[in-house]
């Protein structure tokens, strides 16, 4: 475990940052909050001769909500700021919750939601609620921009569709419909402050007949990437809420999980917990949707 050596570049604009990425393409990484990157570099899990810091790029830390366009989180938006933002708390409570319970205060003050996604840890806490809210990511390179749905973004542990010369510039989340409910529950088997051993997020809305629509369920820490649960979603879509149906959907969520045994939990336990948490998340979503205008 020798100390990693690298040069740190601190561009003031995104263009400069893209230039630097290109110039040092042979061995370069982007630095945002650094909470994962620095550990990976020190631990030898990753190496780079150059780091391009996004922390002095103007305008990147925006958190912006508009009733037409929904939510935009800049790549520099800190997890703690997202957690505390009134619009996020109002329209995306499951995301606000994920951002307020993950890691520690210090790490939330340093880390960014974009970094949490770009690291592509299977346990990324913000990924499951953003999947449930139909989030997408805006990727920029010198040639231009593209928008990728979050469910198409993750490729494996630590792997995404990001090209080497691309920067995750922002996260976009559409405006949720009215009469909707959403929730994120995480569980770590030992302590309150922990990497989630299992996380489940859900979203659903009710139509005028009281049938569920736009149902989304997503899990973290139970597969190589954060995953959606399409089978469970399909079972619920267009149906009237019924406790037995919700329970069956929770069981179906387990089939989306491909968990492993690791330090934090066994695969068996994770599977069982996906069902428990999915059941609770659906209940919570439903009562929120039934309870109010949100």
């Amino acid at each position: 475990m020798a100390t990693p050596h690298f040069t740190v570049h601190q561009p003031a604009t995104l263009e400069e940052a893209l230039d630097l990425l290109g110039r040092h393409r042979a061995s370069v990484k982007l630095l945002a909050g650094g909470t994962d990157l620095i550990m990976k570099l020190r631990g030898g899990a990753m190496s780079a001769d150059h780091l391009v810091s996004l922390n002095r790029v103007g305008g990147l830390n925006r958190i912006n909500y508009q009733d037409e366009d929904g939510l935009v989180l800049g790549a520099g938006a800190r997890i703690s700021d997202v957690a505390a933002h009134p619009d996020v708390r109002k329209h995306y409570p499951a995301l606000a919750h994920a951002c307020s319970v993950m890691a520690t205060t210090q790490i939330r003050n340093m880390g960014t939601v974009a970094g949490n996604l770009a690291n592509a840890a299977p346990s990324a806490d913000t990924a499951a609620p953003l999947l449930a809210y139909r989030g997408s990511v805006v990727l920029v390179e010198r040639g231009g921009r593209r928008q990728v749905k979050l469910e198409e973004f993750f490729k494996g542990p630590g792997l995404t569709v990001l090209e080497p010369m691309e920067i995750l510039e922002a996260i976009r989340v559409p405006v949720p419909p009215g009469r909707a409910g959403s929730s994120y529950l995480r569980l770590s088997a030992r302590s309150q402050v922990d990497i989630a051993a299992v996380g489940v997020a859900g979203f659903l809305a009710l139509d005028l007949d009281g049938c569920m629509m736009g149902v989304r369920l997503a899990c973290a820490s139970v597969a190589p990437t954060p995953v959606r649960c399409p089978e469970a979603e399909a079972m619920l879509e267009g149906q009237r809420p019924d406790p037995r149906l919700l329970a069956r959907a929770a069981v179906a969520c387990v089939r989306a999980a491909r968990p492993i045994d690791d330090l934090r939990a066994t695969a068996n336990y994770r599977r069982a917990m996906v069902q428990v948490l999915a059941g609770r998340v659906l209940q919570k979503c439903l009562s929120m949707a039934q309870g109010g205008a949100q």
Partner: peptide, 26 residues
């Protein structure tokens, strides 16, 4: 919550993230 996870004599949880001591919340 505290426990050493070991395999063939090697301690696997060598950080405070994975060797859990109770926090103020616990």
């Amino acid at each position: 919550m505290e426990d050493f996870v070991m395999k063939d004599g090697r301690t696997l949880n060598t950080t405070f993230l994975d060797y859990k001591i109770a926090t103020a919340q616990d």
